[in-house]
């Protein structure tokens, strides 16, 4: 089996599409289908899920018997670890801590994604970004953010 060539990337892609399709189909089952004249909320989604499943299956099947034409490359683990939590942190704290501290910490978290960033540089960058953004967005554009939130004793 392992001697035959196969395209690992396409196998993963096909399986992922099929899994997503199965998920949407499962969720659609709880919705009313309706008739083709009066389509219910579940009609179009179930058709699309079926189509996506089919496409995923074709991608999967075609992946066998053909070598992987391009290697998978490196994965930005460090990037995933620090970049993705940054907006989540901002979302969790922007109301409680307020705009200024939330943004400051968000920028600090994001800056850790590069191994080239030194701690002092990150700190300075975060301070500059926070000051500039507060001036532009809060004072300049007048976005309705609380600059310091109720979680702080200020």
């Amino acid at each position: 089996m392992s001697t035959k060539p196969k395209d690992g990337t396409d196998i993963a892609a096909g399986l992922l599409f099929m899994a997503i399709a199965a998920f949407f189909a499962w969720q659609s089952l709880g919705l009313e289908m309706g008739t083709s004249t009066r389509m219910g909320p579940g009609y179009f989604p179930i058709v699309l899920s079926g189509l996506l499943f089919l496409l995923g299956a074709i991608i999967l099947v075609k992946a066998f018997g053909r070598p992987d034409d391009e290697s998978f490359g490196r994965i930005a683990w460090r990037g995933i670890l620090f970049i993705l939590p940054a907006p989540i942190f901002f979302g969790l704290t922007v109301r409680g801590l307020g705009f200024v501290p939330a943004l400051f910490i968000t920028t600090l978290i994001a800056s850790q994604a590069s191994m080239r960033m030194r701690p002092l540089a990150a700190l300075i960058l975060a301070i500059i970004v926070t000051i500039m953004s507060t001036l532009i967005f809060s004072y300049g554009l007048g976005l309705p953010f609380r600059r310091f939130g109720p979680w702080l004793p200020v």
């Binding site: 907006p87 922007v94 968000t106 800056s111 960033m117």
Partner: peptide
């Protein structure tokens, strides 16, 4: 300008922008 300076700024802008 090195990239490691740019992307934290971009992330900050993204967060503000999407939330706004």
């Amino acid at each position: 300008v090195p990239y490691y300076v740019l992307f934290p700024i971009i992330m900050a802008m993204c967060s503000i922008g999407v939330y706004s």
